[in-house]
């Protein structure tokens, strides 16, 4: 059975459902009136993207996505919204000229991207069901080996960046005496 040139399989159906969840949550996020609902809708996007990662045999990134995005970042956003409690939320927009211009710009960009993806002459050889770069079920081992052998110095630098960002956030948000 074929659909737009793609063979219908379980994986394709799973991809289709996950993509639908991601895009629907993103559109809901842009259309809600209350900031709180927006922050909750973004959780759907993050969980859907985590599912996409699982579909691509990237289990470690998928788990990290659930922990960091769906867990920490969504909750942090909710805290920030509650601390800066909005009176009326996102009621008034920036004006219809601004919105129309933005929409046209984004639509042109998306059409260009889609055209490029659809007509690219690169021969993306359809990969087999087995990931070729790492053995099945050993994704975490492969990530760890790459992270601690090839990318050791970037890994250490990123940890320094993380501590600097967190200390900086505490200093910025602290009450001044």
């Amino acid at each position: 059975m074929n659909f737009l040139g793609y063979l219908i399989t379980g994986q394709f159906v799973a991809f289709f459902i996950l993509a639908l969840i991601v895009i629907a949550s993103a559109i809901l996020m842009l259309n809600f009136n209350k900031v709180m609902y927006m922050a909750l809708a973004i959780g759907g996007v993050f969980v859907g993207v985590a599912g996409i990662f699982f579909l691509l045999n990237a289990e470690f990134i998928g788990i990290a996505q659930v922990l960091i995005y769906a867990g920490a970042i969504t909750i942090l956003m909710l805290f920030a919204i509650m601390l800066t409690h909005e009176k009326d939320g996102e009621s008034n927009s920036k004006g219809w000229i601004h919105e129309t211009a933005s929409f046209v710009f984004v639509a042109i960009l998306l059409a260009g991207l889609m055209y490029g993806i659809r007509t690219s002459t690169i021969n993306w050889s359809p990969a087999s069901d087995e990931p070729s770069a790492w053995p099945v079920g050993q994704n975490v081992e492969a990530v760890a080996a790459s992270l601690f052998q090839t990318y050791t110095i970037p890994f250490e630098v990123v940890s320094v960046l993380l501590i600097v960002a967190l200390v900086g956030a505490v200093v910025l948000a602290r009450k001044e005496e």
């Binding site: 960091i68 790459s146 090839t150 948000a173």
Partner: peptide, 27 residues
């Protein structure tokens, strides 16, 4: 596997960005 390691790094950068951005917002 390199793409996944890069994605992991960008995840860390996103977490930093949110923390500093929300601190700026509260300030």
């Amino acid at each position: 596997i390199n793409g996944q390691v890069f994605a992991l790094f960008s995840l860390v950068i996103a977490a930093c960005e949110v923390a500093v951005g929300l601190a700026l917002l509260i300030s």
